[in-house]
Design a protein around this nucleic acid. Structure first.
Lengths: 153, 153
DNA sequence: TAGTTATTGTTATGAAACATAGCAATCTTG
DNA sequence: CAAGATTGCTATGTTTCATAACAATAACTA
């Protein structure tokens, strides 16, 4: 027997080398870090992302924002309601059914902070990969993400 | 104004280039694919992973498995209970408190199928990255994951 | 133009993942 | 031996995510 007793913490981990699980762990690590950083200005990652997206597309429609972020219509409602309730986002009907979103001055102010935090966060991790080809990493991630979307038709 | 009307699906997506979100999307894509593939043998990704881990470490302790997978003790209980209830995993007390896990013959049979499915799944995505340096991708993911664990002290 | 179809925001609801607190039994250690 | 740590477990709550239905409205089509 080559495996005497896996009693202690010397378990062999066959899944640690799986690409999917490595992706999952790396993703969780970055997201956790971003969550901590954004918590300092009272935002969760989703909220920060919505702020960024609405800021870049003033007057965009709530449903489109959700589609772009992979958030279902139903789940967008309390999300933007919270942001609007805090005076960060303005909702104005453009249709009889669609809502156009834009940032209030306070929202724009916070959006800039989110952007700075995300920049710093990104930089921190990119410094880790110094010397390696980050463009290649990005390309690989993009390919994987697209394949996933294609496969989930 | 350079941005006439973001009404349609022509929203600019400033977060799409963020490393964190690319990671998240790639991870979600692979996990979704694995979920679909494993569903064909009636398993969720977590369950498949536990089967793999227990199979590689017969007699390992339930609590250690949870620790390795980042699953809290409390949440391990219904998980292994389900696997044991389906006759895939054997629980036998090694202590007065610890449970040693091992695969039943049926569990070992299913574990091999999980392994094959994971192999095929992995291959499908690696084919996407043909010509690119996959070892570099793995190295980068490992670095990011470790930095995250270090930062969450 | 009239009637069908699709879309939007919304509510309600449920499933699943994840975390906390406490407990009794038991092991470990000083 | 006594104190502290650990294990499995229950109960509970939170957060995320997905589904179904609905009224109002827009878009499309015959």
């Amino acid at each position: 027997m080559d495996k005497p007793a896996p009693s202690a913490d010397r378990l062999t981990d066959p899944v640690a080398l799986r690409l999917g699980y490595m992706l999952r762990r790396a993703s969780a690590a970055m997201m956790a870090g971003l969550g901590i950083a954004l918590a300092e200005i009272g935002l969760r990652p989703v909220e920060g992302t919505i702020l960024i997206l609405v800021g870049a597309n003033p007057g965009c429609i709530q449903s489109d924002v959700g589609r772009m972020l992979g958030i279902k219509r139903a789940n967008m409602v309390p999300l933007v309601a919270a942001l609007a309730g805090r005076g960060l986002v303005d909702k104005s009907p453009v249709d009889g059914r669609s809502l156009a979103l834009s940032l209030t001055p306070a929202g724009e102010l916070l959006r800039m902070q989110v952007d700075a935090i995300m920049d710093a966060h990104e930089t921190r991790f990119e410094r880790l990969l110094a010397g390696r080809d980050i463009a290649l990493l990005r390309e690989a991630l993009r390919l994987i993400a697209e394949e996933g979307e294609a496969g989930a038709e």
